[in-house]
């Protein structure tokens, strides 16, 4: 009988365990919310770059690059907001307006930023634009970025030998909200 009593006590000890009521459904409430930031585009312009081979000043120049971050399904499906931030130094003798467009694969504009006007000799200009994807759903189709710099038409040409610079730097911050 002692044997069975020992066996019973041992079994009771080992099998009569409990586990706190866990709620595994909480996993469904988990939302991954990372915020990634990256350098985007930058350039430095000297007046000489604005003159064509005939010595005529161009009042606007444009450059374009692919930007294929949004082709990643995870980003495309879960992006909720982007912040576009730029720092500009305009040492030119005239105002410069920067026009930035996000384009899709077929060069259709999916989002146009408010033109950024930087006055002459404005050396610490910053600009922030926050864009909610819910209000601009096509933005996630972005495949290219086009940046145009437009010079103020003062009626006089700049000095092509001047070393005054126009500096533009930008960064993008991407807000993700992904279900588990």
């Amino acid at each position: 009988m002692k044997f069975f009593r020992i066996l019973f006590i041992t079994s009771a000890l080992i099998f009569n365990s409990c586990a706190e009521d866990l709620d595994f459904d909480q996993v469904n409430d988990y939302v991954l919310r990372p915020i990634y930031t990256s350098a985007l585009t930058s350039f430095t312009l000297l007046p000489a770059q604005l003159f064509d081979s005939n010595g005529v000043q161009q009042n606007s120049i444009t450059d374009i690059t692919n930007f294929e971050v949004f082709t990643d399904d995870f980003v495309k499906d879960n992006i909720v907001k982007i912040d576009f931030y730029s720092e500009i130094k305009n040492d030119f003798d005239r105002a410069v307006t920067i026009n930035i467009d996000f384009l899709d694969r077929n060069n259709n504009v999916v989002y146009s930023f408010t033109p950024i006007q930087v006055q002459s000799k404005e050396l610490d200009f910053t600009y922030l634009e926050e864009i909610a994807i819910a209000s601009n759903p096509t933005l996630s189709e972005t495949f290219k970025i086009r940046v145009e710099a437009v010079l103020e038409n003062t009626g006089t040409q700049m000095n092509p030998n001047s070393t005054e610079e126009f500096e533009f730097k930008s960064a993008i911050t991407v807000y993700i909200e992904a279900d588990f």
């Binding site: 350098a39 585009t41 312009l45 770059q49 450059d63 690059t65 930008s170």
Partner: peptide, 19 residues
Amino acid sequence: IFEGVEFEYDANSNLDYWG
């Protein structure tokens, strides 16, 4: 080291920055 896309605004070249 990655510092984003640096535009050159060179009308004579058609650079594939992303590439």
